[in-house]
Design a protein around this nucleic acid. Structure first.
Length: 773
DNA sequence: ACCGAATCACTTTTT
DNA sequence: GTGATTCGGT
């Protein structure tokens, strides 16, 4: 047990305490992962069976890293047996095992968002509803997801008048029909979406007490990472599993809860856990090992403004360090130039490109950094972005595999049925789809009987032959699913698909790239086939007799839950400055961090209207600053192109919330004239001549300048110009006419008559109104 | 079936 | 401004 000496007092207590439910509040950089991994190692050393430990994370990456670290502390064979993974992957394993209870097959397909949207789009079109505005697949899916995360089925929805009137209010009274049809289609396809994995697990636990009992006994100790980001559905499943033995440890930081827009509920960590586990013990990891004192102080000051939080005092014994650097910029181009220069100066001082990260609120902001960094020849890499497994050509190949495994998977089938082209046009497909839909059989079943139905379907001999051939091949592959190893079978299917030939027949750059990606996929399959089965259930439960080799079906199980961050470790590649959204930066750390675009309307986002949303933006700011180990650079621009038009904005209110003595304003621009347009220059208080480090007086002036501006202008500068009689547009309420304006800015209100929603009173500084006439 | 023009929409996104 | 999607012509 000597590894415990690596821990500080609270960390060690958090590791050793197992008597009752435990909540560990882990401030940024306080060694959270260390506590989790050591705790699991500790449990194992104490004699707990590794397969009786369940550790739930939010990313595969986090799970993988933890597994690796545990393997250094205990026998690696034990480390592998721990049930460690994302909520989704662990629950998917449970659901496959228990599939028949909820009348699914164990080989069900997991649909990604693209598949889901496609289904919704088809449904909306079939129902003759408007898919441009009211029933946009993205927003319908968002609402469905929201409901599922709160365990509200279509049937349950119909018992909740609030929800019904919400949709009626938005002229979406058929929403529940779409929801029903969507669930039905998923079921017919033998598929679940991401949220279903959580939803059905809860259903399973609710409706099958023996199943719940089984998993309560299996998971004798439960750990949850990033607890602040759990949604209702995730929390309930944990609560159910831990209900009897109460052996549960949740770790998280309420100050870093930044995913509420995806259903995460900060109250799980702030209040719910305490209420539901009254016997719990609470530890707070408050020593920060990551950042300088100034960074820690600044971040404490940021988060202090939030009301909804668990009190804590994060401190560090690290050196004081430098102040936070604040760059005032004229526009986004200027911002990128200043940062590029600062990067080069850091490089000159011996830093490495990989020591630096550029953080931004929205993905669109990355573009200008790319352009400017290319000019300065600064190597960079955008972290995140499209996953390898989301690329069209990869998804197409996977669609072939999906159909072989689960021929009911109609999304996959439709994707490949005529790609590459094999002479089945829209008309034929429509005839078949309609027939299948009307007769409630799957499209694949119909295709298997195409010869018999040829006359009824009114399709030609040629097409009938094509379909027969296609079906025969798929069935042949399916029969080999457990006879052939994954590599052999995958290559045969790929060959049959003709996708590579198709792309090679017109070798554009893009197509060559696609062929390479497909080869990369085969490469990944080969790597997978060399791995051994390490899932804990093989040790604990009777598995169906599996062949000695790895199967295609097993590969597909793993692939469906991978994301872009799970691919080759971008962080370990040749030194590059990393560009990413603040959301993606959570959990990472860098010596030098640039937090960019600190402007009202961008960060905090103009979409935020309510106090809790501002608090979430503030937590986002907290996350961004606490990524920095040595130095944090902040920047804002006066003018920025957003959505194709130039916007003037004022510095973010978050800048004012920082203690001014911790900030050094930088205007390191010997040739600043080239960036500053003359009309701005004279009135530009931010660009008073200063050099490297500011004198205190200048600091005050900047501080006040930002303060005055942001308080006066808040998010919607343009609203100042509104007058009685103007026709405006509002995101939620639509078109309306201003009947009256009252009060003095910034407290002025408008009474607006909306065409669709009648009269409303709006506070101008918050309401996002766009003048149309 | 495919290409180019027109149109649109647009925070964040661990699964 | 950009990228994705859809539509309409060949």
């Amino acid at each position: 047990m000597d590894f415990l000496k690596d821990l500080n007092e609270v960390q060690r207590q958090s590791v050793e305490y197992i008597d009752s439910p435990l909540m560990v509040i882990a401030g940024a950089g306080s060694g959270k992962t260390r506590v989790l991994t050591y705790k699991i190692a500790y449990l194992i050393q104490k004699g707990w069976k590794p397969y009786n430990i369940l550790a739930l994370t939010f990313t595969n990456k986090a799970a993988g890293e933890m597994k690796e670290r545990i393997a250094h502390l205990v026998n690696p064979a034990y480390a592998r047996q721990v049930w460690m993974g994302t909520f989704h992957s662990v629950f998917a394993k449970i659901l496959r095992r228990e599939a028949e209870k909820i009348s699914y097959t164990p080989t069900f397909t997991i649909y990604d968002t693209e598949d889901s949207k496609k289904i919704i789009s088809d449904i909306v079109k079939r129902m003759n509803l408007d898919d441009k505005n009211i029933y946009k697949p993205t927003s319908v899916l968002a609402r469905i997801s929201d409901l599922k995360n709160n365990l509200i089925s279509p049937a349950k929805y119909e018992t909740l008048p609030n929800l019904i009137s919400e949709d009626r209010y938005r002229k979406r009274e058929h929403f529940v029909d779409v929801y029903k049809a969507y669930q039905k289609q998923l079921y017919r396809n033998g598929a679940m979406d991401f949220d279903d994995l959580l939803y059905y697990t809860n259903v399973l636990f609710r409706d099958f007490p023996d199943v719940l009992d089984k998993y309560q006994n299996l998971f004798q100790y439960i750990l949850v990472d990033e607890f602040q980001d759990t949604n209702f559905s995730q929390y309930l499943s944990v609560k159910q599993l831990a209900k009897n033995h109460q052996k549960v440890c949740v770790v998280g930081d309420d100050a870093q809860s930044i995913y509420s827009f995806r259903g995460a509920d900060i109250n799980n960590i702030v209040t719910n856990f305490r209420k539901d586990f009254p016997q719990h013990k609470l530890f707070k990891l408050e020593e920060n090992y990551r950042s300088t004192q100034h960074i820690v102080e600044a971040s404490n000051a940021i988060i202090k403004k939030n009301k909804n939080q668990i009190p804590k005092k994060v401190y560090t014994n690290n050196s004081k360090g430098e102040p936070l650097f604040l760059y005032a910029c004229t526009d986004e181009n200027h911002e990128a130039h200043i940062i590029a220069k600062e990067i080069l100066s850091l490089i000159n001082k011996g830093a490495d490109y990989s020591d630096m990260a550029i953080l931004y609120r929205t993905n669109a902001q990355s573009r200008v950094f790319e352009d400017v960094f290319r000019k300065y020849q600064i190597p960079y890499k955008i972290y995140g972005g499209m996953s390898f497994y989301q690329r069209k050509e990869v998804k197409d190949v996977l669609a072939y595999f999906r159909v072989v495994i689960n021929s009911k998977d109609e999304e996959a089938l439709m994707r490949i049925i005529n790609f590459p082209t094999r002479g089945l046009g829209d008309t034929t497909l429509e005839k078949m789809s309609n027939y299948a839909y009307d007769n409630q059989i799957s499209l694949f079943e119909l295709m298997q009987n195409v010869r018999l139905l040829q006359n009824e379907l009114n399709i030609s001999n040629k097409q009938t032959a094509v379909i027969e051939n296609f079906v025969a091949n798929i069935v042949g592959f399916r029969n080999n699913l457990f006879e052939q190893d994954v590599v052999t079978l995958a290559k045969e299917i790929l060959d049959f698909s003709g996708i590579i030939k198709y792309y090679e027949s017109s070798p554009t750059e893009e197509n060559k790239e696609r062929v390479l990606n497909i080869k990369e996929l085969i490469n990944a399959i080969e790597q997978f086939s060399a791995t051994e089965r390490t899932l804990p259930e093989e040790q604990t439960m009777n598995e169906n007799q599996l062949p000695a080799f790895r199967t295609l079906e097993e590969f597909m199980r793993e692939v469906s839950l991978l994301t872009s961050q799970d691919e080759k470790d971008v962080l370990n590649m040749s030194p590059k400055v990393l560009l990413m959204t603040i959301h993606l930066s959570k959990g990472l750390e860098f010596p030098y961090v640039f937090v960019t675009g600190l402007e009202e309307g961008l960060f905090p986002s103009s979409r935020t209207m309510f106090e809790d949303e501002i608090e979430e933006e503030r937590r986002l700011f907290y996350v961004s600053v606490t990524r920095a180990k040595i130095r944090a650079h902040l920047s804002f621009a006066q003018k920025r192109f957003i959505n194709g038009r130039s916007n003037y904005s004022v510095p973010s209110r978050f800048i004012n919330e920082l203690p001014q003595e911790l900030i050094s304003v930088q205007t390191d621009m010997p040739n600043r004239r080239q960036y500053i347009s003359s009309d701005l220059d004279s009135s530009n208080i931010y660009f008073e001549k200063t050099n490297k480090t500011e004198s205190p007086r200048k600091l005050v002036s900047v501080h006040q300048a930002t303060k005055n501006n942001s308080e006066a202008n808040y998010s919607a500068v343009q609203n100042k110009d509104l007058e009685k009689g103007h026709v405006i547009y509002h995101d939620k309420f639509g078109k309306g006419t201003i009947l009256e304006i009252s009060g003095k800015w910034p407290d002025s209100k408008a009474i607006v008559h909306f065409d669709a929603h009648g009269q409303k009173v709006l506070l101008l500084k918050f309401a996002k109104l766009e003048k149309i006439q």
